[in-house]
Amino acid sequence: EPIRLTLEKGGSTIPDNPHEGEEFGYVISGSVEVHIGKEKYAVGEGESFYLYPDEEHYISSPAGAELIWVSTPPSF
Rank of each mutant, 00 (worst) to 15 (best):
E23P: 04
I68Y: 12
G44A: 05
T72G: 13
P2D: 03
H35L: 04
G25P: 03
A42I: 04
T13F: 02
G44K: 10
H19S: 07
S71E: 03
F24L: 11
E47S: 03
T13N: 02
L67G: 00
A65D: 01
H57I: 03
V27T: 08
P62T: 09
L7D: 10
D54Y: 10
G21I: 09
H57C: 02
S75Q: 14
H35A: 08
K40W: 02
E8C: 05
A65L: 06
E39W: 00
S48C: 15
S71R: 06
W69T: 05
G46T: 08
G44H: 07
A42T: 06
I36W: 09
F76H: 09
E23K: 10
P53R: 01
I59V: 15
R4Y: 05
Y41I: 13
Y41M: 10
K38H: 07
E56H: 03
H19Q: 05
G25Q: 06
G25I: 13
T13V: 05
F49E: 12
I28T: 08
E56N: 04
G64N: 13
E23G: 12
G30L: 01
K9S: 14
P74M: 12
N17V: 14
E39Y: 01
D16H: 12
P73Q: 04
I59W: 01
P62E: 09
T13Q: 01
P53I: 02
A42W: 01
G46C: 09
P2R: 08
Y58I: 07
L51E: 02
I36T: 05
V27M: 05
V70T: 13
D54T: 11
E20Y: 08
E8I: 11
E1Y: 12
I14A: 15
I59H: 00
P62S: 11
G10V: 10
E1N: 13
V32K: 00
Y58H: 09
Y58C: 07
F49C: 15
G30C: 05
G64R: 06
P15H: 08
G21M: 10
T13A: 07
D16W: 06
I68R: 06
P62W: 04
I28A: 08
P73D: 08
Y41S: 10
H35Q: 06
